[in-house]
Nucleic acid binder design. Structure first.
Lengths: 392, 392
DNA sequence: GAACTTCGTTCAGATTGTAAACGAAGTTCT
DNA sequence: AGAACTTCGTTTACAATCTGAACGAAGTTC
């Protein structure tokens, strides 16, 4: 019922049209919601040839919603109101090798800071959405067999946050699922029933939207495409198999290929960079070299793109999405990567599955994670509010 | 509302519990449905310590539902009542190279025969579910760019059947989707949220169930895994690409590999078979040779299984299903194929995605297609009945 | 066979939703 | 400027709907 209200964020008695209710009931219901403080009036709208409508909106003073996105190397925390507008956000580097207590503890601190800066108190926090880099048992809100951080397995994320924020519920999901959700709610994914959000960074993962809903799979590990095998004789991956996509095309692989190119002399640019960096190279350096027109760097990026595209081609045949959004740390690598991915997908997939397929970078940028986390929390919030209303 | 009734096929005033209605309303509603002829009483049940309940059931005299499953080489037609029980079925070989008029015309004839044999008339047919071997625009009920039978594109299947069966609605879907639905409703797929039904026959295709619903993809071509590339230098496929799974591991590929083995002398058994068959070999022959312990035949089957398993391994990582059901013409090939598939999948997928994964043959057998078609038609029937009820 | 269950219906009363009428506020055309 | 017409939102009387409690029917258990 008020889920509808969330959609039309500003509108008046069109509600009676949208819901199919009579004007009488709509009016009465709205009055009750205003009395309860859920809705507020917000000025008047433009006339449609008669009396001006009195617009309303969800009361954004109801409380706060937090979105937390924990990546392999960075950590984002944002505070939003119940309409999903971000009030403030912050970001800092982290390391998943650290014990969960310290990482989540830091999240709590940052969140408390944000709330204080906004002039609120911790008990005004209604809900927290958390994205973590690994398979999540969604119902329990717990990581299951995370390859990157075995220590985190079964860490009670929900209870941990509840200790500090008593009044808030906690929803935990995989970080890529949450990015896909963010793209759906705050990006170009709006209204698209079937799409894939591909995150390329330290690892490679995919968030899947099927029939408009997140597909998590039976163990919460759906979308784990980083460990699809692309070369049976390829390098050893952290997961124990050989030639995983992640081990061959993600950020670290790009960096190590660049190091090799710097060593064997196939790229003077990369060699210079390595020296000025103190013997190491980061994925960003390869991108920079690429911009300068370095052929070896370009080849490295293209190779990555082709491998990723080859895998995506299979998935396109299988899943037939209408859109693929590419995001993550590698996103600012310009178009070379994307072009290579596109070419590989178009070359290898069935024409029917690709004629309407669009492959592009996510435009939501670095906010996509926290936006998704907030959306997830809001979904949960409005679901229980609906239930409460049904019970009362 | 009566969708619930369809679930509990025999039950009485538990309906008031299931629906949450008061006993009064449930009773009244049931009376109305009985008067309209939708429900019938069917004896008494066992006492629970008090008065015996009077069991009811959906009236199976309401009309007929037809399920039609058109494969690449065979055609199945079945007649069922509105509870989904098959009354009678028939099957005959066909060829998708024939024009659609003649294939669908033959379906109509068979269906008329079945109805007559059951002592009914064509206007008692309420709905028809049709499965066709190719991508389907589900909303329009029309084939889109089918690789095997370009002539069938845009053929108005719905209108064609409506000409003969005026009172029936027609729902068209891809044949593998329909098999997946059949597995869900009449097989081991009951209650499973995420699974893949893999059909291996003349072609290779997959039906996908995500969050308990068929995932059709944005163009209706989801599940078309037959044209995933497994070998960039492989043989040319009918689709124009090289090294498609279908071209390397499906029935025809198995047969042609067997012919080669018969020619080059690596298998005496296959050579004998070829001679007694008049120079050709069918996939079934390879199976027979396999049973006799022929090593070359066994290798052929194992190779196919491995290639299929390699592809499935990627899809398991991506989709994380809890079950994979294997069906289609190759199903009766015994366990060699399945063992090879299983080994490849377990070897290549992430442990988390495979620990709870079950890969087995579909037990529904040859009925799975028509059962799915019937289920699809029933879903549609009960959906519109629900709507009608809401409107009245 | 008395006491207690479960099943299903009947009926009065409360709850809920609706349509129509009406007042308020605004626009357009003369 | 004002008459006529719109749209917006509320009030009110009325109709449909649902529920709870009471009750008869049918059975089980001790």
């Amino acid at each position: 019922m008020r889920a509808l209200r969330r959609q039309g964020r500003i509108s008046r008695s069109e509600i009676s049209n949208i819901t199919g209710w009579s004007k009488a009931k709509a009016s009465q219901e709205i009055r009750s919601l205003i009395e309860k403080g859920y809705l507020v009036e917000i000025g008047e709208g433009v006339s449609q040839g008669g009396r001006k409508p009195r617009l309303l909106r969800i009361n954004n003073q109801l409380g706060y919603i937090a979105g937390i996105d924990i990546g392999a190397t960075s950590l984002d925390v944002a505070l939003a109101d119940v309409t999903g507008s971000i009030l403030q956000r912050c970001s800092e580097p982290t390391d998943v090798k650290l014990p969960p207590q310290s990482v989540f503890g830091r999240c709590s601190e940052l969140l408390l800071d944000l709330i204080r800066t906004q002039g609120g108190t911790p008990d005004q926090l209604l809900g927290i959405g958390v994205g973590v880099p690994g398979p999540v048992d969604f119902a329990r809100g717990v990581l299951v067999a995370p390859p990157l951080m075995p220590e985190w397995e079964n860490f009670p994320i929900r209870d941990f946050f509840k200790k500090t924020f008593h009044s808030a519920f906690v929803v935990v999901d995989n970080d890529v699922n949450i990015m896909a959700l963010g793209e759906q709610r705050a990006g170009d994914g709006a209204g698209i029933d079937h799409f894939i959000f591909v995150k390329i960074g330290t690892g490679i993962g995919a968030g899947i939207i099927s029939n408009g809903r997140i597909h998590r799979g039976s163990d919460g590990s759906a979308g784990d495409i980083g460990h699809i095998c692309v070369d049976k004789e390829g390098p050893l991956c952290a997961c124990g198999n050989k030639g995983c996509l992640e081990a061959m095309a993600a950020g670290p692989a790009i960096a190590s290929k660049a190091l090799e190119a710097a060593r064997n002399g196939s790229s003077a640019t990369l060699r210079e960079m390595r020296e000025s960096n103190g013997g190491t190279l980061r994925p960003e350096d390869v991108n920079a070299a690429c911009r300068e027109g370095d052929q070896a760097a370009l080849d490295i990026i293209r190779d990555s793109g082709q491998m990723i595209g080859d895998v995506l081609a299979s998935l396109v045949n299988f899943f037939n999405p209408s859109h693929i959004f590419v995001g993550g740390g590698i996103t600012n690598f310009g178009n070379h990567l994307l072009v290579a991915i596109r070419r590989a997908v178009l070359h290898r997939s069935l024409p029917l599955a690709t004629t309407h397929l669009s492959i592009k970078f996510s435009r939501v940028g670095s906010n996509v994670g926290v936006m998704g986390a907030i959306s997830l929390a809001l979904d949960y919030l409005f679901a229980i509010e609906d239930n409460l209303h049904l019970m009362v």
